[in-house]
Write a protein that binds this DNA or RNA. Structure first.
Lengths: 336, 336
DNA sequence: ATGAAAGCGCTAACAT
DNA sequence: ATGTTAGCGCTTTCAT
């Protein structure tokens, strides 16, 4: 269109000729710790500048076997939590010169076909968030010496590190908060059945309530999806002995629950009914939701991931990042 | 820790030996259209499988000069619109075998130092969303034959393509809608001063209102930020002749405006005051906001970007993706 | 249809 | 401190 032929970018060799040095000297000029005299460095740099030379990271990767690329697999980004996590991860990794290569994919089941793609890119590490890890991928990565970090998921696989929020402590604190608030009947809305995170939160909650002598909470499943959650909450609230306290396994579902309670059932959320979430996403603070929730600090999780990546390959660490109960208006506040 | 030495992945050469063929035959076996007999293909494939061979895309990139990686630069992801855009882009590109490499960065000013990094990765194209394009980067890319696609931004630079929503039509429709709703005094909350998108929306709105003979709208600046927007809206509403109709340059700021109007000034949004946004992000549909807004269809924008990338390098296209006025409850509905 | 050989742009010994 | 040499793992002529 412009008739402007794409002239290929200049190489280290071009720079070498222009500066009257060898090609390896050019390489050294762009290697931080290399031994090179100030004058030749200067010569090379100015030659490079005038040629518009940029070191080719692909070629560098081929030989150093370090791409500085981190593969990030996410299922669905409609959940605000993952948008925040993505941001935090990037903020943590970018200053270290590492970039995120996105493998966001079909939310259904094992997204493995896509994940095997990751390996082909010589990524330095793989971060899996909201994705189930197939044992075959885990094995492949281990063989290739690529560290795998699971965020918000557990895994039995050898060699994979995990970073999770404090699901059990959080769920128990929420249960206590709800019980001290004097509710008649509680309920829990689970996320995905096969998600370790959702299961931990749900089971801890139920255990805590039951062991305190309260009646067993109702249970519904929202699949972390708006429609399913809406249906689940409707059914819960339409029942004969509707719950007056609901714990949703994440904030996203809690927002939906609030909508249903407030706009479909005309309930005053925080008085007639208490609704609590998990994650403490940004929107939770909006006066519109004023969601009481348990925080999962993405910043801290991203830092943990970053440290794991920095500290070399052969570690397997399981880190629980602590959170705290964030009390707002969506749940009755115990008087005591 | 595991004591398990990272054995390097097997190469095409390994497979060649195992299958008793030449290395180039292995290459052909993994090249879709290559001429290879069914039997040798079979031999190679099974050898590859048993060795766990994966073609090294980095090496391939070095020679083909196509990485199948698209660089994506975003400023801030806290804006739901960009999360949606990221999703849409990925959904569109992933089936084509193209991955997004993220360059999300400091929101302040020209994020250029980071962007020059992009070139080093041999990306096939660069998508810039919510980022100002420096002319030097534009020039570098043009020289290297790398297509640049701006989403939601205009640019005078030669050779860059742009994809934008219908800012002017949208702003005019919003102005009309507000005027037909019979408001006394209108106001507009602009985003960033130097954002072409915000300027287009703001100017078209003001022009439309003024040319209809209405009194000139007030103007405030929210910088696409929560705090600044909150302050701006407060000032607007605290004034002597407060506006009863506000157009915010995006949904994100409109949400903040609703919060301030409703929770700080006790206004009934949709009756006492009308608030309209731009983008139609998912949350806008929530009954909590019920935001009247003008849609910017991310799906269509992503498709446009994808087509631009597919169709080769040398095009410069300026595409406006049409949107529509989405009427909900946050603004008075004209009776006529 | 297959193999041999060259080389993509770079880093990393090894010399000097 | 600098140059020489040998690859990294692959695609691509060019032969056969």
């Amino acid at each position: 269109m412009t008739g402007h032929a794409a002239k290929r970018p200049s190489t280290a060799y071009d720079v070498a000729r222009a500066a009257g040095v060898s090609q390896s000297t050019v390489s050294r000029a762009f290697t931080p710790g290399a031994s090179i005299s100030p004058q030749t460095l200067e010569k090379v740099v100015s030659a490079a500048k005038s040629l518009g030379y940029q070191p080719n990271l692909i070629a560098r990767t081929l030989i150093t076997r370090r791409s500085n690329i981190i593969g990030l697999a996410l299922a669905h980004m409609d959940n605000e939590f993952y948008a925040m996590l993505l941001n935090a991860l990037n903020d943590e990794l970018a200053p270290l010169g590492r970039r995120l290569l996105l493998f966001s994919g079909d939310p259904r089941g094992e997204s493995d076909p896509m994940l095997s793609e990751i390996l082909k890119y010589q990524v330095d590490a793989i971060i899996l968030a909201s994705t189930t890890l197939s044992s075959s991928l885990a094995e492949d990565c281990r063989a290739a010496g690529i560290p795998i970090i699971l965020i918000n998921r557990a895994s039995a696989a050898k060699g994979v590190s995990t970073i999770t929020g404090d699901n059990i402590v959080g769920a128990c604190m929420i249960a206590d908060f709800l019980m001290r608030g004097g509710h008649r009947q509680l309920a829990v809305v689970a996320g995905l059945e096969n998600s370790s995170t959702s299961r931990e939160r749900e089971e801890a909650f139920i255990r805590q309530v039951v062991s305190a002598g309260h009646s067993r909470p109702y249970r519904a499943v929202g699949h972390y999806q708006a429609d399913a959650t809406r249906a689940a909450v409707r059914q819960l609230l339409a029942g004969p002995n509707a719950p007056d306290g609901i714990f949703c396994a994440n904030d996203f579902m809690a927002f939906v629950a609030i909508e249903v309670a407030r706009y479909e059932f005309g309930l005053d959320v925080g008085r007639d009914i208490s609704i609590i979430g998990f994650d403490n996403v940004q929107s939770a603070a909006s006066p519109c939701w004023a969601l009481t929730t348990f925080s999962q600090p993405v910043r801290a999780m991203a830092q943990a991931a970053s440290m794991l990546i920095q500290s070399g390959e052969e570690i397997e660490l399981h880190q629980r990042v602590p959170g705290e109960l964030i009390v707002r208006g969506s749940a009755r506040i115990p008087t005591s």
